[in-house]
Design a protein around this nucleic acid. Structure first.
Length: 426
DNA sequence: GATTGGGTTAAAT
DNA sequence: ATTTAACCCAATC
């Protein structure tokens, strides 16, 4: 058995750490067990940052990760949703750090002050393109202006002081990023050898290499590919002894074992992406519905959908708000209001510039038919986690089980957990 | 909003 | 053709 070379370690980490269905614990174990490559693949670098963010989504270190992530060369498709999610997460974390710091003035200055503020630099020209936006500029200005102004600080705390909201922005970014992370080097190689590109690859291979391909592809697939090559399988070249058969069987079963352990990450990633897109489209539709009643075809019209919607001040409670009757109007409302009875006239509310929103157009808004998700088989880890979850949180508490295992149940809904449990109990 | 029972779809046998 | 697993819907709490 040859020693594990650094390139091999790099390939393995690229495959495992970059696979969203591999739980954090397993990825960390792999990272601890193998030398981290001196020149990691972009995918591995990205995945490492994502996992670091997942473990610690709202902190100074997270802000670093977010900025680093934005400075990486973008994934295969530099999708607009990804950039929007990155900008929203970065802004939410930076703003939360500022408002939650013991010394607002110092923190806001360090983060948003001109010219050297950490977050300011990231969102301005010359910083990461993905993080730049009019909204980010506006918020940076707000924070800068709030230094020494306790009233503005109160407003900003109300707007940005919800840690859970900031974390949610980061989780949304993680979902988008994982969905776009693409194939590992190993998967691409596998694709070339047994997938669509097989014919060309096999044609170019010499007989020794092709023999290896045959082992990797399995007997049946190899026959298919060689059939398409228009060549007969050279029986004469095959050594046929019981020993060779034993070795081949062993290889095949270890291959099968590998397949059963290493889940294809793409379906989960696709599901996660669909999830995010669907959630956004739902929001768009809901806004339209609330605004224009009795208009069944309203979904066809591009509405005021806004992915940055939840960047709003956390609006808890049921107090009536201007937002209730005029969705385009903006008002501030904060939890730690000094007059909880609401007796103060709105005229006294501070006049900070409202964060601007970038309009977001979901793909294919015309197709309102919510299409059925493609059925994706449950892997052993999911089943085991579900079993443990029912034990721990109780039968029926699907939401708890789901939200406490976000790494495992990627693209699943609470309802799916219920259905799966029903199947498992049959 | 979360959960549930009953129903539909499509893959597997 | 039948069975099974994953997914969806609408009622209910």
């Amino acid at each position: 058995m040859p020693r594990l070379m650094p390139e091999d370690a790099s390939l393995l980490l690229d495959h495992v750490v970059g696979d969203p269905s591999v739980p954090a614990a397993a990825a960390n174990a792999a990272l601890a067990a193998l030398p981290f490559p001196s020149r990691p693949t972009p995918r591995l670098l990205r995945a490492s940052l994502l996992r670091r963010l997942a473990a610690d989504p709202v902190s100074a270190a997270a802000l670093d990760s977010l900025q680093l992530l934005a400075s990486l060369p973008s994934s295969p498709s530099p999708a607009a949703p990804a950039a929007a999610a990155a900008a929203a997460a970065h802004l939410a974390v930076a703003a939360y750090l500022a408002v939650s710091a013991p010394d607002f003035d110092a923190a806001a200055g360090a983060l948003f002050g001109r010219p050297g503020g950490r977050a300011r630099r990231a969102v301005e020209e010359g910083g990461a393109a993905a993080l730049a936006s009019d909204e980010a500029d506006a918020v940076a200005d707000q924070f800068e202006a709030a230094v020494g102004n306790s009233f503005s600080q109160t407003v900003l705390r109300g707007l940005w002081g919800d840690r859970a909201a900031a974390e949610e922005r980061v989780r949304e970014l993680l979902a988008v990023e994982w969905a776009a992370i693409g194939q590992s080097r190993l998967e691409m190689a596998a694709e070339r050898i047994v997938g669509d590109g097989a014919i060309e690859t096999w044609r170019a291979a010499d007989e020794v290499t092709r023999a290896k391909y045959r082992l990797l592809a399995g007997e049946q697939r190899a026959r298919e590919i060689e059939g398409k090559l228009g060549e007969t399988i050279p029986q004469g070249n095959q050594i046929s002894t019981p020993e060779v058969h034993k070795v081949m069987d062993a290889l095949k079963s270890s291959c099968a074992n590998l397949h059963s352990v290493v889940e294809d990450p793409l379906p989960a990633a696709k599901a996660a992406a669909d999830e995010v897109l669907a959630a956004r489209m739902d929001k768009a539709v809901d806004l339209n519905a609330g605004e224009v009643s009795n208009q069944p075809t309203a979904c066809d019209i591009a509405g005021p959908s806004a992915p940055a919607d939840n960047l709003d001040a956390p609006r808890k409670g049921t107090a009536a708000s201007l937002m209730d009757w005029n969705p385009t109007a903006r008002t501030f409302q904060w939890e730690d209001s000094p007059d909880p009875d609401g007796s103060r006239s709105p005229i006294h509310r501070p006049q900070l510039p409202s964060p601007r929103r970038t309009t977001f157009s979901p793909l294919q808004p015309a197709d309102n038919k919510a299409k059925r998700r493609k059925a994706r088989k449950w892997c052993a880890l999911e089943e085991e986690t579900l079993r443990k979850g029912v034990e721990q949180y109780g039968n029926g508490n699907w939401k708890d089980i789901l939200t406490n295992n976000p790494d495992v149940f990627i693209g699943r809904k609470a309802m799916d957990l219920k259905d799966k449990w029903r199947n498992m109990m049959r």
